[in-house]
């Protein structure tokens, strides 16, 4: 039998969330350290966007999207120490989402490519990772094509590669 948690949300009213669908962000998101537990809410009207709804705070939710839909080449390189702290043993266990800022003009939507959410889907916890690269911005206009060249993309091979490196040196080599 699965445990189901009933939570109140401002946006969706009462939600019944199976416990195994709750994603924990042990450090919270940047600026939201207190809210650690979330659930992904998918509704047809908002696809391909998802809502990351806090189960701790009924008023807190973020719009997130799988970056592959817009930026097939987007690539997340995370440090070996982060691979380890996320307890990732294979690329298949990782899900990457980016948080988007939606504005009144839909075309003005931006995605935060520098601070993606990396989730260990097996263990249901994740982290907002800050990428060391300056290739990606925190405010990337995903629907506007003239941005001076495509940005380079995410594959999880990078994570495997990172894992193989034994060094825990955090140097970004700048």
């Amino acid at each position: 039998m699965t445990d189901v948690l009933t939570i109140q949300t401002e946006r969706f009213g009462e939600l019944n969330v199976p416990k195994e669908e709750i994603i924990e962000f042990p450090e919270g998101l940047l600026g939201f350290a207190e809210q650690k537990n979330y659930v992904l809410v998918q509704e047809a009207a908002y696809e391909p966007f998802l809502w990351l709804q806090s189960t701790d705070d009924p008023h807190l939710s973020f719009v997130v999207v799988d970056p592959v839909a817009f930026l097939p080449d987007y690539r997340v390189e995370i440090k070996p120490s982060e691979v380890e702290s996320l307890e990732l043993t294979s690329v298949d266990e990782a899900k990457v989402l980016v948080i988007v800022v939606v504005r009144d003009q839909p075309e003005d939507i931006t995605a935060n490519l520098q601070g993606p959410l990396v989730i260990n889907t097996e263990k249901c916890f994740g982290k907002q990772v800050v990428l060391l690269t300056d290739r990606y911005s925190t405010r990337h206009y995903i629907l506007q094509e003239d941005q001076g060249g495509a940005e380079k993309g995410f594959t999880a091979q990078q994570e495997e590669k990172a894992q193989q490196e034994t060094s825990n040196d955090e140097s970004s080599g700048e």
Binding site: R11, L29, L30, G31, F32, Y46, F49, L60, S61, F62, V63, I99, V100, V101, V102, R103, D104, P106, T110, N112, Q114, G115, Q128, V130, T138, R139
Partner: peptide, 17 residues
């Protein structure tokens, strides 16, 4: 910057999305 984007992202309305 990420903190600011997170704050802004949390303000989205259903109608915008």
């Amino acid at each position: 910057a990420i903190h600011a984007e997170n704050k802004a992202a949390s303000q989205a309305t259903a109608s915008q999305v």
